[in-house]
Simulated scan of single mutants.
Amino acid sequence: MEFLTEYGLFLAKVITFVIAAVVIVSIIISATHKERSDDEDDGELQVFKLNEKYRKLRESVQAKLMTDQERKNWTKAKKKEHKAEKKAGKAKKEEAGAVKEAPGRIYVLDFDGDIKASDVDPLRRAISAVLSVAEPGKDEVVIRLESGGGLVHSYGLAAAQLDRIRSKGIHLTACVDKVAASGGYMMACVADRIIASPFAVLGSIGVVAQLPNFHRLLKKHNVDFEVLTAGEHKRTMTVFGENTDKGRQKFLEDLDDTHGLFKDYVSERRPDLNIAAVATGDIWFGKRALEVNLIDEIKTSDEYIIEACDRADVVSVSFQRKRTLPEKLGLATSTALEHTVWKVLSAFRNQKIQ
């Protein structure tokens, strides 16, 4: 027992030391990160051809379906084919006279939005990179968009980033596989063409605000809460103070004004849309959204991009920000926690089934 006690104390000291070291290192790295200027490069632009990705995927499946001898013959034939293609391409470039104009490129961007539209900064950088090389009237940008909406000003900025593409005369296509609602649809409507999967959620052209109020609880316990403002409408609704009918009316007027701006924004970019019929805050699934002209075509992003690979070079462009050590530790912790929760829920479900 004495040995176990000493061992337990030793183990506790080691764990305490490790935790303290991790905390100290995290604080140091976090402080260093905060000292970086905004102009300092804290990430990298990643660019790769999707044509090559899908070609390798197709050839991998083909190879798995062959016998060893068939695979050897097929590999030799492919090498000869690639060599002949390179030689033919080089010969065409060396030909005198006008060379046939190359087809336009298709640039694929991704946006996965949360309530704060946190992905807007990587999107902004990726768009800036694409606009520096894309040719108006020739190239195309495809945005794979997933978002249920969020803060008005955050998604207003995200939509404005997509407006930059159209203002340069570059065709913009929005692909929605799961959801583009509220602020997500504000972004999608910027596109020249919106494509969605059969059961993607679209619409929710409305504005919502909700907050709890603890005034009666505080009053019950004789706790005063004062809100001091300069300006009649500086604070219309509060969480702890007493809300008045006048304040509520002003708050509703602000919501209506924001809704009006939202409707005007969508109407300008999709003039054929009956905005009065769809700006009710309702949502539509893919096929129903097509019927009310919220989208232009039913198709998954995979279908669209694979088809695009047959007619042009398709390039994925993304900006990957470097994560700090605290962020990496937080991500690892949340991933482990999520995995544990799902494992427990799955075990419970299996037990119920049995």
Rank of each mutant, 00 (worst) to 15 (best):
L45K: 08
D302S: 06
I205A: 10
R71P: 03
R193F: 06
Y107F: 15
S318A: 03
R323Y: 10
K87S: 14
G156Q: 10
I165R: 06
R216D: 08
G97T: 09
I205V: 08
C309T: 00
K299T: 06
K72R: 04
S204Y: 09
H233T: 08
G150L: 04
T5G: 13
D163V: 08
R288M: 14
R164S: 03
K287Y: 13
E268Y: 11
R164K: 00
G260A: 05
K80W: 06
T300F: 05
K72C: 05
G231L: 03
E40H: 06
K76P: 13
V176S: 00
P122N: 07
A158T: 03
Q46P: 06
H33G: 12
D139I: 01
A88R: 14
A230S: 15
E94P: 14
V22E: 07
Q249W: 14
S132K: 01
T229R: 11
G206L: 02
L218H: 15
K116I: 14
L252H: 11
G156F: 07
V25C: 07
R124V: 05
D302L: 04
A126H: 10
V108H: 07
Y265W: 00
D42M: 02
S334E: 15
D139K: 01
I143F: 01
L162F: 04
E232I: 03
S154D: 15
K34W: 09
A31S: 10
R124M: 08
L151V: 03
S154V: 09
I295K: 00
D38Q: 11
S197Q: 01
A102Y: 05
T75M: 09
A332H: 04
K116R: 15
H153V: 02
G137Y: 12
Q161D: 11
E140M: 03
D313L: 14
L109T: 13
K343A: 07
H259E: 06
K100G: 14
A347N: 00
V207C: 01
E303G: 07
N73Y: 07
V130L: 13
G281E: 04
K250W: 08
T32Y: 13
M186G: 01
S128Y: 00
H82P: 12
S60N: 15
D302I: 02
I106H: 01
R71E: 05
I24T: 03
F214S: 13
L261V: 02
